[in-house]
Protein backbone atom coordinates (compact mmCIF):
# COMPACT_ATOMS: atom_id res chain seq x y z
CA UNK A 1 0.00 0.00 0.00
CA UNK A 2 1.46 3.31 -1.06
CA UNK A 3 0.03 6.72 -0.39
CA UNK A 4 0.31 9.49 -2.95
CA UNK A 5 0.77 13.21 -2.38
CA UNK A 6 -0.35 15.48 -5.23
CA UNK A 7 0.64 19.15 -5.20
CA UNK A 8 -1.91 21.64 -6.52
CA UNK A 9 -0.91 24.75 -8.46
CA UNK A 10 -2.48 28.18 -8.52
CA UNK A 11 -1.62 31.57 -9.84
CA UNK A 12 -3.01 35.00 -9.09
CA UNK A 13 -6.01 33.66 -7.22
CA UNK A 14 -7.01 30.78 -9.49
CA UNK A 15 -6.24 27.09 -9.36
CA UNK A 16 -4.62 26.03 -12.59
CA UNK A 17 -6.38 23.19 -14.49
CA UNK A 18 -3.43 20.81 -13.96
CA UNK A 19 -4.44 20.65 -10.26
CA UNK A 20 -7.57 18.65 -11.03
CA UNK A 21 -5.72 16.54 -13.61
CA UNK A 22 -3.15 15.63 -10.95
CA UNK A 23 -5.94 14.28 -8.77
CA UNK A 24 -6.84 11.84 -11.55
CA UNK A 25 -3.21 10.83 -12.11
CA UNK A 26 -2.56 10.56 -8.38
CA UNK A 27 -5.72 8.52 -7.82
CA UNK A 28 -4.56 6.10 -10.53
CA UNK A 29 -1.33 5.49 -8.65
CA UNK A 30 -3.05 5.23 -5.27
CA UNK A 31 -5.62 2.76 -6.66
CA UNK A 32 -2.86 0.53 -8.00
CA UNK A 33 -1.72 -0.15 -4.46
CA UNK A 34 -4.85 0.56 -2.44
CA UNK A 35 -3.25 3.66 -0.95
CA UNK A 36 -4.66 7.06 -0.07
CA UNK A 37 -4.51 10.22 -2.13
CA UNK A 38 -3.42 13.35 -0.30
CA UNK A 39 -3.43 16.78 -1.90
CA UNK A 40 -1.30 19.72 -0.76
CA UNK A 41 -2.15 23.32 -1.55
CA UNK A 42 0.28 26.01 -0.50
CA UNK A 43 -0.28 29.79 -0.22
CA UNK A 44 -3.13 32.05 -1.27
CA UNK A 45 -6.79 31.44 -0.51
CA UNK A 46 -6.25 27.84 0.53
CA UNK A 47 -9.77 27.45 1.92
CA UNK A 48 -11.36 28.19 -1.43
CA UNK A 49 -8.78 26.10 -3.23
CA UNK A 50 -9.45 23.18 -0.89
CA UNK A 51 -13.19 23.39 -1.69
CA UNK A 52 -12.44 23.11 -5.37
CA UNK A 53 -9.86 20.35 -4.88
CA UNK A 54 -12.26 18.23 -2.84
CA UNK A 55 -13.29 15.99 -5.70
CA UNK A 56 -13.99 12.28 -5.96
CA UNK A 57 -11.02 10.17 -5.02
CA UNK A 58 -9.28 12.63 -2.71
CA UNK A 59 -8.80 11.32 0.83
CA UNK A 60 -7.15 14.28 2.50
CA UNK A 61 -6.30 17.88 1.69
CA UNK A 62 -3.50 19.67 3.51
CA UNK A 63 -3.61 23.45 3.40
CA UNK A 64 -0.56 25.55 4.10
CA UNK A 65 -1.49 29.14 4.63
CA UNK A 66 1.92 30.85 4.42
CA UNK A 67 2.39 33.24 1.50
CA UNK A 68 0.17 34.53 -1.27
CA UNK A 69 1.80 33.47 -4.53
CA UNK A 70 4.10 30.60 -5.46
CA UNK A 71 7.57 30.74 -3.95
CA UNK A 72 9.83 27.75 -4.59
CA UNK A 73 11.69 27.95 -1.29
CA UNK A 74 8.46 27.97 0.70
CA UNK A 75 7.12 25.13 -1.45
CA UNK A 76 10.19 22.92 -0.98
CA UNK A 77 10.33 23.54 2.78
CA UNK A 78 6.58 22.94 3.17
CA UNK A 79 6.57 19.74 1.14
CA UNK A 80 9.63 18.47 2.98
CA UNK A 81 7.84 18.96 6.31
CA UNK A 82 4.55 17.52 5.05
CA UNK A 83 6.30 14.51 3.54
CA UNK A 84 7.82 13.74 6.96
CA UNK A 85 4.39 13.97 8.56
CA UNK A 86 2.78 11.64 6.03
CA UNK A 87 3.73 8.14 5.03
CA UNK A 88 3.55 8.58 1.27
CA UNK A 89 5.63 6.92 -1.44
CA UNK A 90 4.83 8.99 -4.50
CA UNK A 91 4.77 12.72 -4.97
CA UNK A 92 3.03 13.91 -8.12
CA UNK A 93 3.36 17.50 -9.24
CA UNK A 94 2.76 19.62 -12.35
CA UNK A 95 5.35 19.74 -15.10
CA UNK A 96 4.60 23.45 -15.37
CA UNK A 97 7.05 26.35 -15.34
CA UNK A 98 6.59 26.62 -11.58
CA UNK A 99 6.88 22.85 -11.34
CA UNK A 100 10.28 23.12 -13.02
CA UNK A 101 11.17 25.60 -10.27
CA UNK A 102 10.58 23.30 -7.30
CA UNK A 103 10.01 19.67 -8.30
CA UNK A 104 13.69 18.80 -8.97
CA UNK A 105 14.62 20.42 -5.65
CA UNK A 106 12.10 18.50 -3.56
CA UNK A 107 13.12 15.24 -5.26
CA UNK A 108 16.76 15.99 -4.42
CA UNK A 109 15.85 16.98 -0.87
CA UNK A 110 13.92 13.75 -0.30
CA UNK A 111 16.58 11.73 -2.13
CA UNK A 112 13.97 10.18 -4.39
CA UNK A 113 14.26 9.37 -8.09
CA UNK A 114 12.59 11.95 -10.32
CA UNK A 115 10.83 11.38 -13.62
CA UNK A 116 9.49 14.50 -15.28
CA UNK A 117 6.89 15.30 -17.92
CA UNK A 118 4.96 12.03 -17.58
CA UNK A 119 2.25 11.30 -20.12
CA UNK A 120 1.42 7.85 -18.73
CA UNK A 121 1.87 5.98 -15.45
CA UNK A 122 1.63 2.35 -14.52
CA UNK A 123 2.30 0.67 -11.23
CA UNK A 124 2.59 -3.10 -11.39
CA UNK A 125 5.95 -4.58 -10.46
CA UNK A 126 7.14 -1.07 -9.82
CA UNK A 127 6.50 2.37 -11.19
CA UNK A 128 6.77 2.79 -14.94
CA UNK A 129 6.47 6.20 -16.52
CA UNK A 130 5.75 6.95 -20.16
CA UNK A 131 7.38 10.11 -21.47
CA UNK A 132 8.67 11.63 -24.67
CA UNK A 133 12.17 12.41 -25.87
CA UNK A 134 13.64 14.32 -28.75
CA UNK A 135 10.82 16.85 -28.97
CA UNK A 136 7.97 14.29 -29.15
CA UNK A 137 9.58 12.21 -31.90
CA UNK A 138 10.24 9.27 -29.60
CA UNK A 139 8.26 7.83 -26.73
CA UNK A 140 9.89 5.88 -23.90
CA UNK A 141 8.95 4.03 -20.78
CA UNK A 142 11.17 4.54 -17.78
CA UNK A 143 11.14 2.03 -14.93
CA UNK A 144 11.89 3.28 -11.44
CA UNK A 145 13.86 0.83 -9.32
CA UNK A 146 13.52 2.35 -5.90
CA UNK A 147 11.39 0.95 -3.12
CA UNK A 148 11.44 4.26 -1.31
CA UNK A 149 9.13 5.79 -3.94
CA UNK A 150 9.50 8.50 -6.54
CA UNK A 151 8.68 12.04 -7.55
CA UNK A 152 6.83 12.36 -10.85
CA UNK A 153 5.87 15.51 -12.67
CA UNK A 154 2.94 15.28 -15.02
CA UNK A 155 2.32 16.99 -18.35
CA UNK A 156 -0.85 19.05 -18.51
CA UNK A 157 -3.76 17.89 -20.62
CA UNK A 158 -2.85 14.18 -20.41
CA UNK A 159 -5.23 13.12 -17.64
CA UNK A 160 -8.89 14.19 -17.48
CA UNK A 161 -9.71 16.52 -14.60
CA UNK A 162 -11.18 14.83 -11.52
CA UNK A 163 -14.86 15.56 -11.11
CA UNK A 164 -17.63 15.21 -8.57
CA UNK A 165 -17.58 16.15 -4.92
CA UNK A 166 -15.31 14.27 -2.57
CA UNK A 167 -15.39 13.75 1.15
CA UNK A 168 -11.76 14.50 1.87
CA UNK A 169 -10.66 15.71 5.25
CA UNK A 170 -9.32 19.25 5.05
CA UNK A 171 -6.60 20.02 7.54
CA UNK A 172 -4.35 22.98 7.99
CA UNK A 173 -0.69 22.03 8.16
CA UNK A 174 1.95 24.21 9.72
CA UNK A 175 5.30 23.40 8.12
CA UNK A 176 7.13 25.72 10.52
CA UNK A 177 9.20 27.27 7.74
CA UNK A 178 11.98 29.47 9.00
CA UNK A 179 12.24 32.81 7.22
CA UNK A 180 15.95 32.27 6.69
CA UNK A 181 15.09 29.39 4.33
CA UNK A 182 13.42 31.78 1.89
CA UNK A 183 16.05 33.05 -0.52
CA UNK A 184 14.24 34.28 -3.58
CA UNK A 185 11.81 37.18 -3.61
CA UNK A 186 9.05 37.56 -6.17
CA UNK A 187 8.75 41.30 -6.81
CA UNK A 188 5.93 41.27 -9.34
CA UNK A 189 4.41 40.02 -12.55
CA UNK A 190 4.52 41.42 -16.01
CA UNK A 191 2.29 40.75 -19.00
CA UNK A 192 4.27 40.46 -22.16
CA UNK A 193 3.25 40.40 -25.74
CA UNK A 194 1.08 43.48 -25.83
CA UNK A 195 1.39 45.34 -29.10
CA UNK A 196 -0.19 46.24 -32.38
CA UNK A 197 -2.29 43.12 -32.75
CA UNK A 198 -4.05 40.58 -30.57
CA UNK A 199 -3.75 37.26 -32.39
CA UNK A 200 -6.06 35.60 -29.88
CA UNK A 201 -8.94 37.61 -31.39
CA UNK A 202 -8.25 36.62 -35.02
CA UNK A 203 -10.65 34.41 -37.05
CA UNK A 204 -8.07 33.38 -39.60
CA UNK A 205 -4.47 32.78 -38.60
CA UNK A 206 -1.46 31.91 -40.75
CA UNK A 207 1.33 30.71 -38.47
CA UNK A 208 4.94 30.15 -39.42
CA UNK A 209 7.60 27.99 -37.76
CA UNK A 210 11.18 26.86 -37.96
CA UNK A 211 10.61 25.72 -41.56
CA UNK A 212 10.94 29.31 -42.75
CA UNK A 213 14.71 28.88 -42.19
CA UNK A 214 15.82 32.50 -42.69
CA UNK A 215 14.47 35.87 -41.63
CA UNK A 216 14.36 37.17 -45.20
CA UNK A 217 12.00 34.32 -46.15
CA UNK A 218 9.33 35.79 -43.87
CA UNK A 219 8.50 38.20 -46.63
CA UNK A 220 6.93 35.28 -48.52
CA UNK A 221 4.54 34.63 -45.65
CA UNK A 222 3.77 38.34 -45.36
CA UNK A 223 2.68 38.35 -49.00
CA UNK A 224 0.39 35.39 -48.30
CA UNK A 225 -1.08 37.22 -45.34
CA UNK A 226 -1.62 40.34 -47.46
CA UNK A 227 -3.31 38.35 -50.20
CA UNK A 228 -5.66 36.48 -47.87
CA UNK A 229 -6.32 38.91 -45.06
CA UNK A 230 -5.07 36.42 -42.47
CA UNK A 231 -3.42 37.38 -39.20
CA UNK A 232 0.26 36.45 -38.95
CA UNK A 233 1.45 34.35 -36.03
CA UNK A 234 4.47 32.17 -35.31
CA UNK A 235 5.87 29.33 -33.24
CA UNK A 236 8.59 29.81 -30.65
CA UNK A 237 11.80 29.51 -32.77
CA UNK A 238 10.74 32.40 -34.99
CA UNK A 239 10.13 34.62 -31.96
CA UNK A 240 13.29 33.44 -30.18
CA UNK A 241 15.22 34.61 -33.24
CA UNK A 242 13.45 37.96 -32.95
CA UNK A 243 12.15 37.72 -36.50
CA UNK A 244 8.67 38.44 -35.14
CA UNK A 245 7.66 40.10 -31.87
CA UNK A 246 6.53 38.14 -28.84
CA UNK A 247 2.88 39.14 -29.29
CA UNK A 248 2.80 36.92 -32.40
CA UNK A 249 3.82 33.77 -30.54
CA UNK A 250 1.31 30.92 -30.28
CA UNK A 251 1.88 28.29 -27.61
CA UNK A 252 2.30 27.52 -23.96
CA UNK A 253 4.43 30.55 -23.18
CA UNK A 254 2.77 32.70 -25.83
CA UNK A 255 -0.87 33.24 -26.75
CA UNK A 256 -3.70 30.79 -27.04
CA UNK A 257 -5.65 31.24 -30.26
CA UNK A 258 -9.05 29.87 -31.28
CA UNK A 259 -9.59 30.99 -34.87
CA UNK A 260 -11.99 29.42 -37.41
CA UNK A 261 -8.98 28.47 -39.52
CA UNK A 262 -5.38 28.03 -38.46
CA UNK A 263 -2.77 27.30 -41.13
CA UNK A 264 0.46 25.97 -39.63
CA UNK A 265 3.31 26.37 -42.08
CA UNK A 266 6.66 24.73 -41.38
CA UNK A 267 5.61 23.98 -37.79
CA UNK A 268 6.38 20.48 -36.50
CA UNK A 269 3.70 20.63 -33.81
CA UNK A 270 5.62 20.27 -30.56
CA UNK A 271 3.36 19.91 -27.55
CA UNK A 272 4.16 23.45 -26.37
CA UNK A 273 2.89 24.88 -29.65
CA UNK A 274 -0.17 22.66 -29.85
CA UNK A 275 -1.19 23.85 -26.37
CA UNK A 276 -1.79 27.28 -27.88
CA UNK A 277 -3.77 26.36 -31.00
CA UNK A 278 -5.58 23.06 -30.54
CA UNK A 279 -8.79 24.99 -29.95
CA UNK A 280 -8.88 26.23 -33.55
CA UNK A 281 -12.02 25.18 -35.45
CA UNK A 282 -10.09 23.90 -38.48
CA UNK A 283 -6.36 23.25 -38.61
CA UNK A 284 -4.43 23.04 -41.88
CA UNK A 285 -0.78 21.94 -41.83
CA UNK A 286 1.85 22.41 -44.50
CA UNK A 287 5.04 20.48 -43.72
CA UNK A 288 7.70 18.50 -45.59
CA UNK A 289 7.75 15.77 -42.92
CA UNK A 290 4.72 13.46 -43.21
CA UNK A 291 5.42 12.18 -39.68
CA UNK A 292 5.42 15.65 -38.10
CA UNK A 293 3.15 15.61 -35.03
CA UNK A 294 1.25 18.61 -36.41
CA UNK A 295 -0.57 16.21 -38.76
CA UNK A 296 -1.95 14.38 -35.72
CA UNK A 297 -4.14 17.33 -34.88
CA UNK A 298 -4.60 18.76 -38.38
CA UNK A 299 -7.91 18.44 -40.24
CA UNK A 300 -6.27 19.03 -43.59
CA UNK A 301 -2.68 18.68 -44.65
CA UNK A 302 -0.25 19.25 -47.46
CA UNK A 303 2.97 17.26 -47.33
CA UNK A 304 5.21 19.53 -49.29
CA UNK A 305 7.78 22.27 -49.42
CA UNK A 306 6.41 25.57 -48.17
CA UNK A 307 8.66 27.41 -50.62
CA UNK A 308 6.66 25.80 -53.45
CA UNK A 309 3.21 25.61 -51.90
CA UNK A 310 3.04 29.13 -50.49
CA UNK A 311 3.94 30.92 -53.77
CA UNK A 312 1.30 28.83 -55.55
CA UNK A 313 -1.20 29.78 -52.87
CA UNK A 314 -0.34 33.47 -53.19
CA UNK A 315 -0.94 33.18 -56.91
CA UNK A 316 -4.36 31.61 -56.28
CA UNK A 317 -5.38 34.73 -54.43
CA UNK A 318 -3.91 37.10 -56.95
CA UNK A 319 -1.25 38.28 -54.56
CA UNK A 320 2.12 39.63 -55.44
CA UNK A 321 4.30 36.87 -56.78
CA UNK A 322 7.96 37.56 -56.25
Amino acid sequence: MSDVLAVAEHRRGDLRPISHELITAGRELADATGGELHVAVISGDVEAFADSLNREGVDAIHTITDGEEFNHDLTVESLDALWSALDASYLVAPNSVNGLDYVPAIAQRLDLPLVTDAIGLSLEDGLEVTRERYGSKVETTVAVADDAGAVVSVRDGEWPPAEGVGDATVESFDPGVDESAIHSTVTGFQEVGAGDVDISEADFVVSIGRGIEEEENLELIERLVDATGATLAASRPVVDNEWLPKNRQVGQSGKTVTPDIYIAIGISGAVQHVAGMKGAETIVAINTDPDAPIFDIADYGIVGDLFEVVPALIEEFGGETA
Partner: peptide
Protein backbone atom coordinates in the same frame (compact mmCIF):
# COMPACT_ATOMS: atom_id res chain seq x y z
CA UNK B 1 5.49 31.54 -17.00
CA UNK B 2 2.74 30.14 -19.20
CA UNK B 3 0.39 32.37 -21.17
CA UNK B 4 2.61 35.40 -21.74
CA UNK B 5 3.16 36.21 -18.05
CA UNK B 6 6.59 36.80 -16.56
CA UNK B 7 7.44 36.57 -12.89
CA UNK B 8 9.97 39.12 -11.64
Amino acid sequence: LEGGIEEL
